[in-house]
Write a protein that binds this DNA or RNA. Sequence first.
DNA 1: CAATATTTCGAAATCGATTCCGCATTTTCT
DNA 2: AGAAAATGCGGAATCGATTTCGAAATATTG
Lengths: 340, 340
Amino acid sequence: MAGGISLKELAAELKLAPSTVSRALNDSYEISEATKKKVISMAEKLNYHANPFARSLRENKSKTIAVIIPERINSFFAQVVDGIEEIAQEQGYHLLIYNTHEDLEREQKIVNLLLNGRADAIAMSVTSQTSDVSHLQKLHDRGLPVIFFDRIRSEIPTTKFITNDYESAFEATKHLIQQGCKNITLLTLGKDLSISKERQRGYNDAIKSEGWELDPSMTLYCSHEEERNVELIEELLLSSNRPDGILASVEKLAFATYLAVKRTKLRIPSDLKLISFSNTSIAGILNPSLTTITQPAMSIGNECANLLIKKLTKPKQYELIDQVITIPSKLTIRESTLVE
Amino acid sequence: MAGGISLKELAAELKLAPSTVSRALNDSYEISEATKKKVISMAEKLNYHANPFARSLRENKSKTIAVIIPERINSFFAQVVDGIEEIAQEQGYHLLIYNTHEDLEREQKIVNLLLNGRADAIAMSVTSQTSDVSHLQKLHDRGLPVIFFDRIRSEIPTTKFITNDYESAFEATKHLIQQGCKNITLLTLGKDLSISKERQRGYNDAIKSEGWELDPSMTLYCSHEEERNVELIEELLLSSNRPDGILASVEKLAFATYLAVKRTKLRIPSDLKLISFSNTSIAGILNPSLTTITQPAMSIGNECANLLIKKLTKPKQYELIDQVITIPSKLTIRESTLVE
DNA sequence: CAATATTTCGAAATCGATTCCGCATTTTCT
DNA sequence: AGAAAATGCGGAATCGATTTCGAAATATTG
């Protein structure tokens, strides 16, 4: 009972029926201006605030969007959420945010929780461990508007927002080649991950476009343990056919690479050139500064929120068509891929 | 209408009264095991999920905690939220998260929205612009459990979690002095901010403890525009009595310093030593690596969530006493403050 | 065996806002 | 002026789950 009066009490105070007060507050045409003014001023005076649960129960909607991300300490996801929140706040929506920590089980639990309708819609990016999608299917079957961003699952027929992963990875690899790399390693995450697959394809095609042979051992699948990744990369750098170029498919693998390089006698970019998908604002102050493929995180967030809210506001008019919408990334060349 | 049956429909299917079904699902002692089993299995079969709004309306609680932070792309706040979420998830609580973007007006709007009880409790860190606290006072007056972390307001009589800002700033300044700095600048944020004041005190006392005179012009108040800060710092570094040591009271000011230094001919740490309050995981891969005061972000988040949930669960037993709980930070010395 | 407990369950009220339906007044039109 | 329409508002049902208050049905006890 966090203080606060109900509509009924407010109505009693005004000697009006609750229905009248409700209509007055909702600016209904059937209430006279005089009454509306009286009601509104009394509501302010008594500090009346409508109970959101009563309203949600009645209207069967909560003005809440759930956002599920695999990690919070990641500039890309943080920016996407900022992008979603920007639109949501404008439109009076609230954000329930969940972090799966790249854990499929947590993802399943969270998704199951959302099955009860606590949120009107969901925007999510799946875990790198997400192989089974039955929990996502259930969500969609329930009729809950769900959209995916970045890490998507094509099995679920809905709208997805991604960046041009294939082209960006292709371009990034090509860039490394142009800068003289002959032996390029791709650092990536789970094999089931949409972005992994696409970025891998881009990398593969870039390699093949040079007439080079594709060496599967040059793709390094990393884990989610920071230290383990550093070890893996260090090992790679100390191996006989160590790479002279690395494409990191996510930011943290680039950071791990910096750490691994520190443990060796190698230097970036003379011994090893590095490029990474990353949205960190400090790419420029790393030393050497990091060449990045910057994803349009904010735009992706904006688009997700816009589409979901349109769908919620005008359900008949907007459909979450089964399509993938691509917003291109931007390559920013910095010192880590310079030819010295 | 996101598919899904109601308790009444479930009851009808079972030829039982809604009350019985409700009790069965809530494992009430007055329901026989046989009935419970029947109910539960039917509930699963029909994919029944309790409507959270009906429940919230009835119970007058939402199992939701609101978290308000001034910025999302900040490793400290991201970690605090992770810390809060960790406990919240365990206890079945949901998180509504709001970003004020350091804007007082937004903070007021959000706080006013929360006045309606959408969340059972609030954990927040105020904006650096927050001078007037009447909106926060209103929250507290309503009886809504509110606690502050990091950036607190002592005017509101509730529990606050911070780190040892004074001691850490003192220690950091002393460290710079020990490393040979004679002219130390403090980079800080809004004058009204609790952490600014405390860190300033720590800095001041460290300077005075050397018998040095305190030069007000050596405290630089920064803004929230990245580029503007870089310009301010660059200007500082080019001035006649440029500092040979900098204590950045927040992470982004350290980053701005790296950028500013890049624009000059100065070098860290030979010309300028730098230490910063920061929780970034990549302090180690900056070049030179950054000496940091790492705040116990995760613990702060954990404590906030624990206390709030205890207060929500056993309101009589736990009070949000007007006190400040301090969890110490940790100094990690890296290259940016090394004597060469 | 009667009387008392105990177990198990149902009917109905409740939380607070919205809305369908209906009833007075008042205004407008022919 | 009488009928039709518009205006302004109240009563009560509704959303879905919980819970109070009882009432059966069964079990226990003297």
